[in-house]
């Protein structure tokens, strides 16, 4: 039983990582109606920027907020500079550009800050809660919760949040009610990059900082967002914790799996969930009359 509890808590701790990134995934999805495969690498790059600032002598929180602002502007710039000219290109072409961005960020980070693994400071005290779960994980949980509330409020109660959803869902109609669709996309990119940056800075103390830190985690982030329901930020967070727990329990209790097949099993479980709940566990079913 102790082992079980321990595994659940470890799962929750990992889940906090996935939930954090899943939020960024949902954010960009609400804004551009697609996944951004470069999201993980953008978050990684942001985290390096923060690391460089801290290494340069800035206090943690100054670097933290500066990174958020830089990431926001960077995300905005990527949309305006790279994607704006491609608005009429097919979606599959956009996916290729995402892949291109992944390669660029990954490789550039390696070239600037080399490939050695770096430690990244946590803003929370060392130690753990009753020896079961680290204080950093608990802190991260609350950061995720704050972001979740922020995003929820933004989409639900602000004019701009609603306009952003409208622009993503139906750009033509959005223009016809006076929404500047292009800038909504850019804003969505900016916000997603900023949230990704927070996720990166929260994750890095656990997984350490290196250019490839996000490759695996982003997959879990996507999976969490999809399992929870891509249209629901709350679902994404719940999905994150669920994926974390499933992954750990499967790895521990099914002997044939062990740690080598953990990822596979998690993915298969996720796909199974989707077969029965195709809109995710918490996603709204979208009804459209033909």
């Amino acid at each position: 039983m102790d082992l079980f509890l321990q595994q659940i808590l470890t799962g929750l701790a990992n889940g906090a990582i996935y939930a954090c990134l899943a939020l960024a995934v949902v954010m960009i999805y609400q804004a551009i109606d697609h996944f951004n495969f470069a999201q993980g690498e953008m978050a990684m790059f942001s985290t390096y920027i923060c690391w460089a600032m801290i290494a340069g002598g800035l206090p943690y929180w100054v670097a933290f907020f500066a990174t958020i602002i830089i990431s926001f502007v960077g995300g905005l710039a990527i949309e305006r500079i790279i994607f704006k000219p491609l608005h009429s290109a097919p979606v599959l072409s956009h996916v290729v550009v995402f892949i291109g961005l992944v390669a660029i960020f990954n490789s550039t980070a390696g070239a600037i800050w080399d490939h050695t693994i770096k430690t990244f400071p946590s803003p929370f005290p060392d130690g753990s809660f009753a020896g079961l779960i680290g204080l950093h994980e608990i802190g991260m949980f609350f950061v995720t919760l704050i972001m979740l509330l922020g995003i929820f409020g933004f989409f639900r109660f602000t004019r701009i949040g609603m306009a952003m959803q409208a622009a993503a869902a139906n750009p033509d109609s959005a223009g016809l009610v006076g929404i500047r669709v292009g800038w909504m996309l850019a804003l969505g990119w900016g916000l997603a990059a900023a949230i990704g940056a927070v996720a990166g800075m929260m994750i890095a103390p656990i997984v350490f900082l290196d250019p490839n830190m996000m490759l695996g985690i982003l997959l879990y982030g996507f999976a969490s967002a999809i399992v929870g329901g891509i249209s629901s930020p709350g679902g994404a967070v719940a999905g994150g914790f669920l994926v974390g727990i499933i992954e750990n329990l499967a790895g521990t209790y099914i002997p044939a799996i062990g740690s080598e097949l953990k990822l596979t099993v998690a993915l298969i479980l996720i796909v199974t969930v989707l077969l029965f709940k195709p809109n995710g566990l918490f996603g709204k079913t979208i009804v459209t009359r033909v």
Binding site: Q165, S173, I179
Partner: peptide, 29 residues
């Protein structure tokens, strides 16, 4: 968007409502 802001409202072919949003949110937009 800027033309709309000058006071031309266009009810497009096929209606173009925001299907995922509520009726009231559509009006609000």
């Amino acid at each position: 968007a800027d033309i709309t802001r000058r006071g031309i409202a266009h009810v497009p072919e096929g209606r173009g409502t925001f299907v995922r949003m509520s009726t009231e949110d559509n009006l609000r937009l």
